[in-house]
């Protein structure tokens, strides 16, 4: 790490922009994404990681997403500003980063993405994100209002046409149900939606039913195996 840390961030950004193959892009993105930025992270470095999401290079995008998640809330605005209505591959990665960061400022976008984005990969990332927002800093009433919105969006998406989105909805509902410590309605409502996803007469895809059943066991505090 020591030798890497002696490189200025600018050079690492340049290395990403100059990369001429999937391999060199992956390597350069990894160096930039794992840099110990300290307090000096530049907007340009964040912008560069966000740019990589649109390069149609899955390996580099994974690394960039992880880097953005590590940066946390400060990456949220640049991600929101970068969303490209024409590139749903890039949007899926961006929503994935927002989901991982779990910042409340991503809520509107996650809701909208789950309800109406044309890309199943975007909707599935949004469903997962709605189940894992970090709401500890909010007051109880505010937190429950946000969780109620997440729950509503997830319940509606139980009817999504793509199995992978419904799978992600089961994961999201589990997150909402587990996060709900005090409320008397969020967990029952999550359970009800998960029950629907776990029944063969309501859900045709076995892996979705299995995941919903696992979520129900976890909500009931049973061993998950």
């Amino acid at each position: 790490m020591r030798s890497v840390e002696s490189d200025p961030i600018g050079e690492r950004i340049e290395a990403v922009r100059q990369a001429d193959s999937a391999q060199t892009l992956l390597a350069a993105t990894a160096v930039l994404a794992t840099s110990d930025h300290g307090n000096s992270i530049s907007g340009e470095a964040i912008a560069c990681l966000v740019e990589v999401l649109g390069f149609n290079c899955p390996g580099a995008a994974v690394v960039a997403v992880n880097g953005l998640i590590r940066l946390g809330p400060m990456a949220v605005e640049p991600i929101l500003e970068s969303l490209d209505p024409r590139n749903y591959g890039a949007r899926a990665w961006a929503v994935r980063a927002l989901a991982g960061i779990g910042d409340i400022h991503g809520l509107d976008l996650l809701e909208e993405a789950l309800g109406s984005d044309i890309g199943p990969s975007v909707r599935r990332a949004a469903a997962r994100g709605l189940g894992q927002l970090r709401l500890d800093a909010l007051e109880d009433s505010q937190r429950q209002a946000v969780q109620g919105r997440c729950l509503q969006a997830l319940v509606a998406a139980c009817a999504d046409g793509e199995w992978v989105v419904r799978y992600a909805v089961a994961v999201g509902l589990e997150g909402i149900g587990l996060a709900d410590v005090n409320s008397d309605h969020l967990r029952p409502a999550s359970r009800l939606a998960l029950l629907g996803l776990s029944q063969p007469d309501a859900e045709a895809v076995p892996v979705v039913r299995l995941r919903a059943a696992l979520a129900l066991r976890r909500l009931d505090g049973l061993p998950s195996a």
Binding site: G115, S116, C158, A159, D160, G161, D201, E203
Partner: peptide, 22 residues
């Protein structure tokens, strides 16, 4: 996706027969 939130979409998906997108 336009029908994902509509009642008929939900009912059809719950019936497990037809994808709402389809």
């Amino acid at each position: 996706m336009a029908t994902s939130n509509s009642l008929s979409g939900i009912v059809r998906a719950m019936a497990g027969t037809i994808d709402p997108d389809a």
